[in-house]
């Protein structure tokens, strides 16, 4: 039983680490600030959750699992807020590359106001 849990934990840790790696690569490769925000906030959320699940399966102590749970809850509650604040500030500062946007309905709405 413990062997099976260890294998699942290992798989979770490896997949989580790979997702975090992809987030890092995307951060380097994506062309503008808004695209990079996707990479900085997203694959990394699932990556972190998988790493936490992997840790929980290995540690198996109530004390550790409650702490991991808190990490997950706070990460999921704060990541969107941070992404929104940076994205909004970046957009308003004109850092979104317009040549990469298929359509920009926020600019249209701003123009009307």
């Amino acid at each position: 039983m413990n062997g099976v849990l260890d294998v699942i934990a290992g798989a979770c840790l490896v997949v989580g680490a790979l997702l975090s790696l992809s987030a890092g690569v995307a951060l380097m490769r994506f062309p503008d600030l808004l695209s990079r925000m996707h990479a900085a906030t997203k694959p990394q959320v699932l990556g972190l959750l998988l790493v936490l699940i992997g840790c929980a399966l290995r540690l198996r102590e109530a004390v550790d699992i409650t702490t991991l749970l808190l990490v997950a809850v706070f990460q999921m509650a704060t990541a969107p807020v941070a992404a929104h604040m940076i994205g909004r500030a970046g957009y308003r500062a004109g850092l979104a590359r317009e040549d990469l946007l298929v359509s920009d309905e926020l600019r249209d709405a701003d123009d009307k106001r």
Partner: peptide, 26 residues
């Protein structure tokens, strides 16, 4: 959604030579 979209963004990250386009939608 989260799992599928994570895989999608991850694959986009490793598609070299391709610049992802995007849109702002109301």
């Amino acid at each position: 959604d989260m799992v599928m979209a994570s895989a999608q963004v991850a694959s986009l990250a490793f598609r070299f030579g391709h610049v992802p386009r995007s849109a702002v939608i109301a």
